[in-house]
Design a protein around this nucleic acid. Structure first.
Lengths: 293, 293
DNA sequence: AGTTTTATGATTACTTGCGATCATAACGTG
DNA sequence: CACGTTATGATCGCAAGTAATCATAAAACT
């Protein structure tokens, strides 16, 4: 029993380190049959700790770097749509801060698919940085700091000090809890870092998905009266029902879609190729930038 | 013709962004048959720009994060052995700087396989950071800075300023050229950053493989009289023959192997499992730490 | 325009990986 | 010690991916 779990731990660690390993290689290394290895892989896959591929096992970057497939399933509706809303806030020539957090990550993903350039992006989130640095015209800066492996994020005193070099037009921030009194986070270090970011940003957006509603984390971050913009997939009346009396002017979410659609202008990005496919037309790639594909 | 190369460029970029994509998905996106897609993938694979897997294509992290297989082939002899020499310099409780560069990366790899903990590692090299952060007992700090995508490294003014927070026991540095007058690098930003690191390090090691011998890059970094330690796979008499009159006391390489082997103590790490396999014994993994597998 | 070269997609036969089933061996428990 | 549980490895049919071949279509060259 223990021995199996131990082996699976090693397996997970090994895949993590190598990012991808073929099944055969894993069998060789562990000296087990393919059947057993498949079982182990299936188990880890069931726990969403790895991604399976034909013939091997793959570790997504930080369990966040989602494969195209996961991306389609996971929150395909609300989260992606909300993320695309955020794109309306991104303007060429400005400087943005991207926090850690899944919602912020999906915003970065949406941005990757429909980039606005030139632009400067500063982030404490390694996957975000790596992803966006590939895009021409996007200047990516990483914060300094201690690398927290589990979250692939940078934190600590050095991170805060390296924030001193910056001033942001917009900051995209995450929280882990949203209650009538405000927004909360689990780690004091995160809260302190975010407070520094807030001081150094002209405007800010808190990106909070519905799973955070009515969850309270140990450390208080900010009250509703101080919040510039809340980006969420929670409908505004549901927020009100939960006792969060946010002003629509500070709210960006499913309800602001119709109005924002025009104002924001152009979420044409990803929809075009998708449409082509769903209509059975040949998925023309023509002169579309890579990011649309 | 152009159109094909253009498509392959897009293909490479796409795989890079997604890290892994199945063949079918790629076909769908580009609207080509599987046959064509396979041909394109084979071409990119031939150029070593991607790694093929059954059913998909995979981009290794920054072409540096080597797959287990590449790692066995690429420089399996000298580079790995030299890297292992460097391990003798790593002591628990101290603070090290890891520069970018392939040789430094292979040192980090060797360290992953036989870690000494606790230890603090500061790096401007994202793959190194990500790799080492997975090891318990290893505290990894990233420098701040602009993320240069092609090299996955951090550079620039912010990087230099974030160095001010540190003092290193040892710094592992790379160069791109080694001539009788000293060491050289291609980018001024790299040289300047390295000079800051040198000022902030009690001792330093330049990690230079044989391909750099007698190559001169545009920017001068340091002369031989100032160099603390040179780590290289070039035999010392070959250096002398090339006009580089380095003192053996400042030299670490194949020639110092015999003496250093005892002093360094224990390169038993990786050799054990390899042996087991080559002898046809069941590749016992027993209680070996993950890193050995 | 005519010819050669190149790229593409369909078909084929072949290889590889997968999941299910089953028998066996190891482990734990009463 | 006998029992049930669990892990394992072998086998097999099936599905998926691949490489090779070939005919067609599109470019490139003369």
């Amino acid at each position: 029993m223990h021995v199996i779990l131990a082996r699976r731990e090693k397996l997970a660690a090994l895949i993590e380190q190598h990012r991808f390993l073929p099944v055969k290689e894993l069998c060789r290394r562990f000296g087990v049959s393919e059947a057993t290895m498949r079982r182990d892989l299936a188990a880890l896959h069931g726990e969403k700790r790895i991604t399976r591929t034909f013939g091997g096992a793959l570790k997504e970057f930080n369990e966040r770097f989602p494969s195209f497939r996961e991306r389609q399933h996971r929150a395909s509706r609300s989260k992606t749509r909300v993320a695309r809303l955020a794109l309306g806030l991104l303007e060429a020539g400005k400087t943005y801060f991207f926090d850690s957090g899944t919602t912020v990550f999906s915003i970065a993903e949406a941005f990757r698919d429909a980039p606005v350039t030139p632009i400067t992006i500063v982030t404490s989130n390694l996957p975000v940085g790596e992803m966006l640095a590939a895009i021409p015209g996007v200047e990516v800066f990483q914060l300094a700091g201690q690398l927290l492996h589990l979250q692939s994020t940078l934190l600590g005193e050095t991170a805060q000090r390296s924030l001193e070099f910056w001033h942001f037009d917009w900051a995209f921030l995450s929280t882990e809890g949203m209650t009538p009194s405000g927004l909360w986070n689990s780690q004091i270090a995160i809260v302190e870092q975010q407070k520094v970011v807030l001081r150094r940003s002209a405007r800010h957006v808190f990106c909070v998905d519905s799973s955070k509603l009515n969850r309270q984390a140990p450390h208080f971050l900010i009250g509703w009266n101080e919040i510039d913009t809340l980006l969420t997939d929670v409908p505004i009346q549901k927020l009100h029902a939960a006792g969060i009396m946010i002003d629509p002017a500070h709210y960006l979410g499913p309800d602001s879609l119709k109005t924002a659609a025009g104002e924001v202008g152009g979420e044409a990005g990803e929809s075009a190729p998708e449409k082509a496919v769903s209509e059975g037309k040949p998925p023309v790639e023509g002169d579309l930038p890579v990011h649309f594909l």
